[in-house]
Design a protein around this nucleic acid. Sequence first.
DNA 1: ACTTGAAATTGACATATATCAACTTATCTC
DNA 2: GAGATAAGTTGATATATGTCAATTTCAAGT
Lengths: 194, 194
Amino acid sequence: MLDHFAKYLDMLQQKDFEAFKAIQQMLKKVELSKDENLIGLHDINKNIYFLEKGITRHYRLTDKGNEINIYFSFEGDVILVTECTVLEMPSNEIIVALEDCELLYISRPDLIKLTQTYHAIETLFREMLELQMIAMERRQFRLQTYSAKQQYAHLMEQQPHYLQKIPQNHLASFLGITKETLSRIKKKYQNERG
Amino acid sequence: MLDHFAKYLDMLQQKDFEAFKAIQQMLKKVELSKDENLIGLHDINKNIYFLEKGITRHYRLTDKGNEINIYFSFEGDVILVTECTVLEMPSNEIIVALEDCELLYISRPDLIKLTQTYHAIETLFREMLELQMIAMERRQFRLQTYSAKQQYAHLMEQQPHYLQKIPQNHLASFLGITKETLSRIKKKYQNERG
DNA sequence: ACTTGAAATTGACATATATCAACTTATCTC
DNA sequence: GAGATAAGTTGATATATGTCAATTTCAAGT
């Protein structure tokens, strides 16, 4: 059960075993059935999650009440809604299980307490944020410059598991297009490859 | 000269004056003339900057060699290209002065050294990243869901200094549209307000 | 296996935005 | 302040994507 978590914290485990143990003791476990919410609309949720098993869908609602998917998390991913967790604001992001999920989590307040005792944990926390930021910088550039077709091609090449595991209607808004457009792009893409 | 920097580090100054002094001593200063690069294409730049004065434009090049503006920094902003600074990769992001600029900076290695002595600095560094992430999360949602018109309206309402200070041709690619479309949107927007 | 509802596809048409080219207006430099 | 260069505007047209409605395919539960 701790597979992914342990891997993520591998460096910590080697560098400061005490610190690793301390985090491990603070971790709680949560299981979600398919379609169950991890974070509901306007929840104030201060937890940082490690997704051990399953897939989660992260979405927001537009003014008109449409769902826009902003992210999907897979096994091994960290789940952190910074705006909600850090600013302690009601969440605009809703997170729901696309499949049955198993997660570990620690509350940010608990984690911050640990950082006061273990410098290695503060460092780990910062490094985790840095990595999340890099991923966001890259995705932002794609959102800003890629056409729908290019985005689809990117997913095909770089993250084919997205296409295998995530229903098209959900994928579409993630790419910033409608499901009909995605369907057409997919067809064209396949034709161009024979 | 330290105005903005000091303000940013205000909490640190009060909480741990030693740490504040230590950072201050590591800070270097750089001035840029208009149109001068802060970070050039493929530079490996490990610095974290505080923009004390001026405006910088952050852009990337597409496959076809077109410039896409991904960000503008104003007085008081932190400038940090995570991918380049953290992974020590050649930068895909180019940063150039839109006006004459004054900046303070510290190298990430130096900052990390300081974090080993001063816990308060590690905390500050992490908090800075958290704030940057929140801003990115919000912008990402806008990029994904707003039409060009909505983006323009958002800028008008939330960040009018963008419209006052940044030439339209640069603003356009930041919004993910062409300069012609921006020109038309602007006109329509003005007419609708009388 | 049958039924039901969800997901995906397709077509016709509407709209938003891009592209290219011409032109005007501002800004900079000598 | 005249000429040169960059920035912004406008028009005509092309392309990409959205919207709505009809249909087909797929999947889940009984």
